[in-house]
Design a protein around this nucleic acid. Structure first.
Length: 219
DNA sequence: GACCAGATGTACT
DNA sequence: GTACATCTGGTCT
């Protein structure tokens, strides 16, 4: 049974100037998943609720590389009702419930039948938003009002969820292994987590840890 | 920083 | 039926 949509936090209401930003085209999402995960840092995620737009700037992502990635829900070609949205065309949304309590939002990449995706781990709200409000995938969904009711929607179909490109800020891109995938054997070491080193919203203290590799030439 | 409880859908036997 | 999960918040050291 699908849960109801939940209202976003009022402090995430977007100003009209941000809503002028252009959406990413389909071709953006169909690219290599690592490229998309990196390029989504700095992108705004916008959610319309009762005709009002709320949103935040993405500052942390993780790439999940499909059937050959032991950390991905689609590992080994798994194709259950829950993960079905991962098999859609790039530019769709995949949302799942984890630990019985928390929702996690992913952006589907590549083409139809190739189940890869980018997990949205953290974001920064508009100016004045508490720094840690969206720090973590569960918090991000909770405060943006994202539930599995939105799993499978097309971000480019003019629906209530959109991703808006913003070139006004240049992120200080860095990478580490992914969080919470200790079960994934060798893949738990793959450096597929990306974040803006300058953002206070990035989860934990890992932002400054020695495991962090700064990416000098983003994209 | 480490450890732990919490709540329940999902995958698999 | 049963074990586990792309997490979070609280407590203790």
């Amino acid at each position: 049974m699908k849960p109801d949509l939940r209202p976003p936090s009022p402090c995430l209401r977007l100003t009209s100037d941000l809503l002028q930003l252009a959406e990413w085209p389909r071709s953006f999402y169909r690219r290599n998943t690592v490229q998309v995960a990196r390029a989504l840092i700095g992108t705004w995620i916008a959610h319309r609720h009762h005709d009002i737009w709320y949103g935040a700037r993405i500052v942390e992502t993780e790439a999940y590389l499909g059937t050959a990635d032991p950390a991905a829900h689609s590992r080994g070609g798994r194709r259950t009702a829950r993960v079905a949205p991962m098999y859609l065309d790039g530019g769709h949304l995949y949302v799942f419930l984890v630990y019985g309590m928390h929702y996690c939002a992913n952006v589907v990449t590549r083409g139809p039948g190739i189940p890869e995706a980018v997990l949205l781990r953290a974001a920064e709200g508009p100016p004045g938003t508490p720094a840690r409000l969206l720090s973590g995938p569960g918090r991000l969904c909770a405060h943006l009002g994202i539930t599995t009711a939105l799993s499978g929607i097309d971000l480019l179909a003019g629906e209530d969820l959109r991703l808006l490109r913003d070139h006004s800020v240049r992120p200080a891109l860095a990478s580490t292994p992914r969080i919470g995938v200790d079960y994934a054997g060798e893949a738990k070491h793959w450096p597929l987590r990306f974040f803006d080193r300058n953002s206070p919203a990035v989860s934990g203290s890992s932002r400054l840890s020695s495991r962090v590799k700064t990416i000098l030439n983003p994209d």
